[in-house]
Design a binder for these strands. Structure first.
Lengths: 232, 232
DNA sequence: ACACCGATTTGATCGCGATCAAATCGGTAT
DNA sequence: ATACCGATTTGATCGCGATCAAATCGGTGT
């Protein structure tokens, strides 16, 4: 009897993750290769910079952040990761993680050990990997466009709209966005100071466009946010 | 007799591209699957936004730029691509290119048609694809860090140092960097106006840190550039 | 050599966000 | 309730880069 927690067929987010494109046989194969999911609490490290890259990670529930530290000691929050998303691939080039991953909330991740990955080749799984390549590249492009916005308000607007889009793909409502992220981390990720972010949030809240709390964001006037996102 | 131009064994950049990790049998397999390289002149489009994604592209010589156009009509130069580098993967998710690729100079690209890609699975090639995933993610991280620099001079410095690193991997000298890119495109890619870029270049040139011409950049004082790159 | 046109540089002004500083909020332990 | 500490907000100043404008450079064709 297979451990029920490692079986994709019963996973609530299986239709949105790596397994999305797999047929029944591919799903069985993936299920067999998956290591039991890891449970983490807020603030727990999943892996740290310099750890050996032992597996591919796939968010099952909760949320993670990844960050890198540059040579001069600056910390950069490279991304936030939600259910169905794969992260931490930087380590595949060198075999050692080039970033650090931390749980932002009570979370769990599925893993495929690198030694098992070749077992996924062929039969639908290859398609999944090509999609993964394309999606990672697309995500990088979107982030590039976001960071090119000169206005802080535009950057926040673009980020929130992209976040809403991600939640939409998960089949969740988009009026309340799940975002268990500190101001410091969010500002860092958006390429601005936390003071600048705080001011933007205050301004947009006062204007009634949105409402941000510790864990949740409410988009109150999507159309106006879209205008902000597009306006230079 | 195989068309000599499609055979990786004779390609001057084979040790730096997808084929890098392949053994002899993998190399033969790749060679057999490669479509004959395409030759392009400066300004030629390799593919455009909306074209069907028919192949994976690999720079053999010259240089390319990729760009996307956002909903509001803004153009974003998402990257410059040099020999040995693979680009245009965004199309693998939807089957349609989400960006446009143009030759910046007399160039040639190798291609693997998407229908042929599954023929690459297994035996060393899978490792190459995992590396590709990791490298793409790492490149995205580096770009993210670059664009987070608030100072225009820092962004340019980081870009040039990364460019030098890329050339170093190709076994070229790093005192003269090949960069057949207009000010407009470079400024766009670096997230600043061309006036700002022009001023920064003038300032750093006057200070004797570098010399930039249409096609070439000379890094005259690498140490000082590195200081600039690191300084906030 | 000349006119012409795009690319690049230089000039001047202004607004936004970085920076330094201080106040306020929120949660926790005592 | 109080003290305490990190997170967040608010305040004030200043510098850099966006913006608008104009000059100059460079290459092409005549």
């Amino acid at each position: 009897m297979t451990d029920s927690r490692s079986r994709c067929g019963e996973c609530p987010t299986r239709r949105f993750c790596l397994a999305r494109d797999l047929d029944a046989s591919g799903l069985d194969r993936l299920s067999a290769l998956l290591a039991p999911p890891i449970q983490l609490s807020r603030g727990d490290y999943l892996y740290r910079f310099g750890d050996r890259t032992s597996a591919l990670h796939l968010v099952r529930s909760g949320a993670f952040k990844t960050l890198t530290v540059t040579a001069d000691g600056e910390e950069h929050v490279t991304g936030f990761h939600f259910p169905g998303e794969i992260f931490g691939l930087t380590g595949f080039t060198t075999g050692v993680h080039e970033d650090t991953a931390m749980a932002l909330d009570t979370s769990s991740v599925c893993r495929v050990h690198v030694d098992e990955l070749p077992g996924l080749w062929g039969a639908g799984c290859d398609v999944a990997f090509l999609r993964l390549l394309g999606e990672k590249e697309s995500a990088a492009t979107r982030l590039r466009i976001l960071l090119s916005e000169p206005r802080a308000a535009s950057r926040l607007a673009v980020f929130l709209l992209q976040l809403a889009e991600r939640q939409r793909r998960l089949g969740r409502t988009t009026d309340v966005l799940y975002l268990p992220v500190s101001r410091t981390d969010l500002a860092n990720h958006l390429g601005m100071t936390l003071e600048a972010l705080s001011r933007v949030i205050s301004r947009l809240s006062r204007a009634g466009l949105l409402a941000m709390e510790r864990m949740e964001v409410r988009v109150l006037r999507q159309a106006e946010l879209e205008t902000l996102a597009g306006s230079r």
